[in-house]
Amino acid sequence: MSLFVTELRRLGKRRVTRLMLVLLVLGLATVATAFSFSSEKLSPAAVAEAEAKANNDYQTAMTEWKRTIAECEAAAGRGENTEDRYGPNCGKDYQPQPDMFEAKWYLPYQFDFRAEFPLFIAVFAASVALFGFIVGASFVGAEWNTGGMMNLLLWRPKRLTVLGTKLAALLTTVFGLTVVLGALWTAAFWLIASQRGSTAKMTGGVWQSIGLDGLRALGMTLLVAAVGFALASLGRHTAMALGAAVGIFAVSEIGIRIAVAVLGVQFGDRYVLSTYAQSWFLKQAELFDYDTCQFSQGACEPATYMVTWQQSAVVFGVALVGALVAAFWTMRRRDIS
């Protein structure tokens, strides 16, 4: 227990941790503040103004449509060819319809907590995950690099216990931070929605769904932090984790995309890591294959492939277990010199 508390203290004392925490909080606060200015609560007057604008635009379109028809018919009367300029039947088939001028399109943007907050959970999770990755990688990488790990092992010559305790301290910190900042993040957006948006239709089921989104976000932050920690431990340097992250991104998002495109693999995006991240946050990701479209037979209905969040859980779980097993195995086997 003393080692765990020590490692918690060590992590908290580290400059990278403090700096990254400040950047994380500032970044999240900036996003929330900036977003609050973009949302505007809809008043009856704003709704009436939007309806008036929509109606006005509809009337203007109708007037223009009638004028164009009249102009076309006059031209036809003079024996001119009108089809190229006005279309068939002088464009009478294109009469503006009221549903083309819906009032809601004329309303200022209003944040809808129920519909849009899940997206902000993903933004929050990505930010905390980045924090966890860098801090996690640095926590073990810098310890190796500066000799701190060796010093610690002279005191506690149980390698797996030491590495496991460090990981536990990291995950506890990231967990606590995600919960606390996540609560503040939710409160901030609830406040924005209450004051400058809408909190309508927030049923118990919606809160449950948001709660599950939050749990997946928490899982993602812990996973990314653990993978960063494991990669840095494998390479015994922070740069190893950062380099691996850049490498994985380049291979997955660029290399694989090019390869599947060249090879003509159907639903090639199912081999791309970001598809699984998307699926994890949005519960599913639907891939389309437009090559199967038969445009000659009318509207296209491309073949689809669904990636579910459960599949994402398997992919990320395998990656996590693989990275951790490798890190602990090398910790146990490799000499410290």
Binding site: T6, R10, K13, R14, R15, A142, T146, G147, M150, N151
Partner: peptide, 15 residues
Amino acid sequence: QFFPHFSARDTLGLL
């Protein structure tokens, strides 16, 4: 070899 941004007291305190 010690963590450069910790003080001597912090370093020894953690140990």
